[in-house]
C-alpha cells in the first residue's frame, strides 16, 4: 500500500476549467451539498479501508521565522493575495498510483454553485516511505 496526499488549493495550480465565485458567495444549500460531498467521500474511503486523514485549513496563515538568538520569532502576513493557498488535504492509503488518481478525480467532482461538478484541480503527492529491508 502507498500513502498519497490529496491537496486542495483555493488558488494556484493549473488554470481552472470552470471559474467560480468563492464558496461564501454560493447559495447556502449548494455550500451544504459541497461540504456533504467531502464528508461522504471521506466516509466512503473509511469503508474501503483507504482513509488516513483529512483536515481543512483556514485560508489566512502567518509566516514565521527564526530571528537570531534571544530574539522572538518574526511573523509576517497574513497576505490577502498570495499566489497559492492550500485549503485542506486528505491522506489516502491505496494499493496503486492508478487508484490514487481515480480517487482524486472523484473528489474533484464535488458539486459547485450550480450543483454540477466543479472540475477542480487537486494536487496528488506520494509520501516518502520507510526504507525497504531487502536492498539487493
Amino acid at each position: 500500500m502507498a500513502k498519497y496526499l490529496l491537496l486542495k488549493h483555493y488558488r494556484g495550480g493549473p488554470t481552472p476549467v470552470v471559474e467560480f465565485e468563492p464558496l461564501d458567495r454560493w447559495a447556502p444549500d449548494k455550500v451544504d451539498a459541497h461540504i456533504q460531498y467531502m464528508h461522504d467521500f471521506a466516509a466512503k474511503l473509511e469503508g474501503t479501508g483507504e482513509f488516513v486523514d483529512g483536515q481543512a485549513l483556514s485560508p489566512e496563515g502567518t509566516f514565521v521565522r527564526y530571528d537570531g538568538e534571544d530574539r522572538p520569532p518574526v511573523t509576517d502576513g497574513p497576505f490577502a493575495e498570495t499566489k497559492d493557498v492550500i485549503a485542506g488535504w486528505m491522506v489516502i492509503d491505496v494499493e496503486t498510483y492508478e487508484r490514487a488518481v481515480e480517487l482524486a478525480g472523484e473528489l474533484s467532482a464535488a458539486p459547485g454553485p450550480d450543483g454540477k461538478p466543479i472540475y477542480e484541480w487537486l494536487e496528488l503527492r506520494p509520501f516518502l516511505t520507510e526504507a525497504p529491508a531487502v536492498t539487493e
Binding site: G47, T48, G49, E50, F51, V52, D53
Partner: peptide, 15 residues
C-alpha cells in the same frame, strides 16, 4: 504498524 486509523484498518480487514 501501517500508520492508518484503527477504524480504517478494521474496515480493510472486514472487507
Amino acid at each position: 504498524a501501517y500508520m492508518v486509523p484503527e477504524a480504517t484498518m478494521a474496515q480493510r480487514i472486514s472487507r
